[in-house]
Amino acid sequence: MPIQYYLFLSMALFCIGIAGTLMRRNAIIIFMCIELMLNAVNLLLVAFSKMWHDASAQIVVFFIMVVAAAEVAVGLAIIVLMYRKVHSVDINILNRLKH
């Protein structure tokens, strides 16, 4: 496949992820859209790794997954904590940054 196909695919997934982040009010769904964006990037990196015959891109993908996993763990813990306080995961209500 020419690299453009993978580029476009990855970009489409990335933009869908962004659209989702902006459109949804549920904090968990937003989190999932972020994961979607990360995966889009992973896909692109693997495609480039094949193009340039460089294994380090795949190593980077590996590390991205590592970081994503850690991030999900901590992020969900925070969301659970907020849910205990406010009993909702609506980001319009989670506006304590205002103060």
Partner: peptide
Amino acid sequence: IQSGQVGFYIFVMV
């Protein structure tokens, strides 16, 4: 402007 709405923040970021 500082509304505390995270969604708005992300929008502006995009």
